[in-house]
């Protein structure tokens, strides 16, 4: 396959940035999106150009490092898929593909497609933990958990913190990420004691980081590689309202 890429290039946080067009030839449909960029980068290095910086680690869809907005969609149009797990067979030969970083003020661009997601770490630090000695994995059923709660907590726990939800949200809100963490911990017995104070601390931190407010557009769930459901946000709102009513 031969492709035309329009890629956001930005040499550093203070650079204004711009779209630069590249041709990539002989791309195999079996390549992942990141492998396709590797091919381009090897050529750029040989030609003495600066390679395109992008984040990645596991390349198997579990670490949450990768992520770029591909043709206007966070992680590309393939549903429930991280950028590293997106394959070139989903694109047409001769296609033009635009590639941009996550765009949000709390996620400043470090370089090209790499953004600084420390804001998520600070939200976790504000309350994404349990202050009980959790010990090693307990015996199954030593603490009974309703099946529905276990399932919902597990679904929420699959969030890999990639930030696609923020990138896709027209308001630049981090509600889906924060809600996933609040739901995950708040539904389990170990997370109960701090349930409300956690919701308050994490939501307040999210607002302090400069993320926008949620208007329930649903853009986040649609692009989330883990399919975190929108009702996690309802759960977060409920806990947050209760915390403030106290």
């Amino acid at each position: 396959m031969n492709l035309t890429l329009k890629v956001w290039r930005q040499s550093g946080p203070s650079d204004a940035g711009r779209m630069v067009t590249y041709r990539v030839e002989d791309v195999s449909p079996d390549m992942s999106f990141l492998e396709m960029l590797d091919v381009l980068n090897e050529r750029l290095i040989v030609e003495g150009d600066e390679p395109i910086a992008f984040d990645h680690d596991c390349r198997e869809g579990i670490c949450g490092m990768c992520g770029m907005v591909i043709n206007g969609v966070a992680h590309g149009e393939q549903r429930a898929t991280t950028t590293c797990q997106l394959h070139m067979r989903h694109f047409e030969d001769g296609a033009t593909i635009t590639i941009e970083p996550w765009r949000a003020a709390p996620f400043p661009v470090v370089k090209d497609l790499v953004v600084d997601r420390s804001a998520f770490d600070r939200i976790i630090q504000a309350g994404g933990f349990v202050s009980v000695p959790a010990g090693s994995a307990p015996d199954a059923h030593s603490v009974p958990v309703r099946k529905e709660d276990a399932d919902d907590a597990f679904d929420a726990a699959t969030c890999i913190g990639c930030g696609a939800c923020v990138a896709a949200c027209p308001n630049g809100s981090a509600s889906l990420f924060t809600a996933a963490k609040i739901t995950h911990l708040g539904l389990l017995p170990q997370g109960q004691p701090e349930r409300l104070s956690r919701a308050k601390a994490m939501v307040d931190q999210m607002d302090a980081e400069g993320f926008g407010g949620c208007t329930n557009t649903g853009e986040c769930t649609a692009v989330c590689p883990k399919g975190i459901p929108l009702d996690a946000i309802a759960q977060m709102n409920s806990d947050y309202l209760k915390a403030n009513a106290k």
Partner: peptide, 30 residues
């Protein structure tokens, strides 16, 4: 108004290409 302003502050640099995925026509004309 405050939601719109927060949204504008949270995304100072606009996307060159942006495609809605949720298909909610009504959500975008609020």
């Amino acid at each position: 108004i405050s939601l719109s302003r927060r949204a504008a502050h949270a995304r100072p640099v606009k996307y060159v290409a942006k495609k809605s995925q949720a298909g909610g026509y009504t959500t975008h004309i609020m």
